[in-house]
Design a binder for these strands. Structure first.
Lengths: 232, 232
DNA sequence: ATTGTTCTTAATCAAATCTTAATGTGTTGG
DNA sequence: CCAACACATTAAGATTTGATTAAGAACAAT
């Protein structure tokens, strides 16, 4: 089930889009200007936004950059004419696609589907999707909770972040240095050499049945750590 | 620096796109049919592909699904007319965007930039699966894994790097000195003379059935090592 | 301030990996 | 044919990497 926000000042257009996007998997919301759209994203979690470029009060481009400060869902811009300038301006600051009016119903549905699919596909690895799953480990970013085989385990912030990083791309090998950079931040002068190794140890003690001979958090000697995707 | 593959059977179109995408950050490659495109993705790591839907030998959609089996970079489809059917068909199985001919230069640049930006932003690094294939050897840079005939072999970092170097350009001969420079780094004071040979030996022991009389890692006396492309 | 938690440091250990060196084998050019 | 050279092979020891433990710093909450 996806929450989709349609934002256009022209109610006829909103209604048309609502019809085109009739789909049991879509929950459709509407806004009629940029301010409203920004406010709604603060209350509800959307998976995709259709955003008109030209609107009263706050234009779509400004609205988008406001939204993008906090959220990371795909945004499809709606443009009245095919004004290349506007198109490009909108795209450059972060839209994922755009559709020109008048709409082709099938095209609208296809583009929306494409973005959602792409998002969730990548999301299984990258975007801020709140629940990650690998094997019988479940990590919920919203509640900052991790369960293994249904049992909740308490992780410290650093442990949580490291596990999240690994779980975002299961199977991918992360060098300790890379983990350090991504979890601690790009600056992070306090580069303790083996501090990552220590956290990994703690993680293994909490997550693995046998912290020595770990089933999930594996090491590739000289390359880094990874979380095991499939069975062990 | 991004590697971009442009694939179209019409050379004029390829050239036009090359001009539109003139950018110091882009390294442009070209292919002229689907088969070629698929092969190229096995040798080089691309960050984005522009793929024509209608091509001889293998159409763009088939090519895309082949590529998507191994790789995960954004793909932008190029469509001749605005045939909604084709567009949507292409989109549904995994393209990230499409552009209709004739092209608007600015639009092409904008879309390409948009996809690259979106991708690297989401990935907060490299999302792309990168799998190199030569014969029945498969090398995955993300998981630092190598399989031969489906069997996983454990390589040390140096072994892995050397194999990767050879597999990036199958058939090309690399002098030991060159291998040393590229794998160890441009500085590399610790220039042991035959250390490369030792690693090659280890590699052969791990991936060849008969380490003496090797099938994959061949030597050209006085020239260097190469990995055998075709059958032996 | 005191307590409890989390993070970092440091020291030690084990193991995998890398390099060296010594010697063997094959190739090439004169 | 033979010297010179390029690669092969092996095993030892040097180096690097990760594991582990515990202590004490930093931090947060009471």
């Amino acid at each position: 089930m996806y929450n989709i926000l349609i934002c256009d000042d022209d109610k006829d257009i909103v209604n048309a889009l609502k019809i085109y996007l009739q789909n049991p998997d879509y929950r459709l919301f509407e806004a009629h200007n940029g301010v409203e759209a920004v406010e709604m994203t603060q209350k509800e979690e959307f998976h995709l936004i259709l955003l008109d470029i030209m609107m009263p009060q706050m234009d779509g481009i400004t609205a988008m950059s406001k939204i993008r400060e906090k959220h990371n869902m795909p945004i499809i811009m709606l443009t009245a004419k095919s004004e290349d300038t506007d198109k490009i301006l909108g795209l450059t600051i972060g839209a994922d696609d755009y559709i020109t009016k008048p709409f082709n119903p099938l095209e609208v549905a296809a583009r929306v589907g494409s973005q959602l699919r792409r998002y969730t596909k990548l999301g299984s690895g990258t975007v801020s999707k709140s629940i990650l799953q690998v094997g019988s480990i479940e990590l919920n970013s919203d509640t900052k909770t991790v369960t293994v085989d249904g049992n909740t385990v308490n992780l410290t912030p650093k442990e949580f972040d490291i596990l999240k990083l690994l779980m975002k791309e299961p199977g991918k090998v992360f060098a300790p240095k890379e983990i350090y950079l991504k979890v601690w931040g790009e600056d992070a002068l306090t580069a303790g050499d083996n501090t990552v190794a220590v956290h990994i140890r703690h993680l293994r003690e909490k997550i693995e049945i046998t912290p020595n001979d770990p089933r999930y958090i594996k090491v590739i000697f000289g390359q880094g750590y990874k979380i095991e995707k499939g069975r062990n």
